[in-house]
Design a protein around this nucleic acid. Structure first.
Length: 165
DNA sequence: GCCAACGTTGGC
DNA sequence: GCCAACGTTGGC
């Protein structure tokens, strides 16, 4: 990727992951990872264009018990092509994607912290300040989604965490 | 396990 | 370009 947009205030995001596939513990063990396998255009656009270095990431366990924000990560590399789209036999392979004009992008994220206590979906639903959070809207399926600064602060507080980078 | 919501595909 | 059929997501 060439240079991105000019500097702008840090933005905040929520990344969903099924813990059976890749949990916060996996990220802690690995230190960082490339967030591959996203095959949704809206999420792709965010990963390619909007999610920039040092942005904050709420790490959410979906399809899990409990469903919860379980930690924090930060973006440590900006959007670049997801190589798994070109890997024959990969479940993420996309035969229609042109290597000269890749269809799917991802960022790298680095582990920051685990929540002292996971912030469960139920707790978030019970918090009026989070009423507008995209995660909690009916039918919201986007796996990479924006979080407002206010929501970010509320969730961090609920998690017993301070912003630490 | 069910199914509503949503995205994608493909026939017309 | 419409929209029915289908596949996936992900909460419940």
């Amino acid at each position: 990727m060439a240079t991105k947009k000019s500097k702008r205030p840090r933005r905040y995001w929520l990344f969903k992951s099924e813990p059976d596939v890749y949990s916060i513990d996996d990220l802690e063990r690995d230190g960082s990872t490339y967030w591959h396998g996203v095959r949704n255009y809206q999420a792709r656009n965010l990963l390619r264009d909007e999610i920039l270095l040092d942005d904050g990431v709420l790490y959410y366990h979906s399809n899990a018990k409990p469903m919860a924000v379980v930690g924090l990560a930060r973006v440590c590399k900006e959007g670049y092509p997801d190589q798994t789209q070109f890997e024959e036999g990969s479940k993420y392979h996309d035969a229609d994607s042109d290597p000269a004009d890749p269809r799917w992008f991802h960022v790298d994220v680095a582990f920051v912290a685990k929540a002292a206590a996971p912030v469960t979906r139920d707790e978030m639903k019970a918090e009026p300040k989070l009423a507008d959070m995209m995660l909690l809207q009916r039918g919201s399926r986007l796996s990479v989604q924006p979080v407002t600064r206010a929501e970010w602060r509320v969730v961090l507080k609920m998690a017993g965490l301070k912003e630490s980078w």
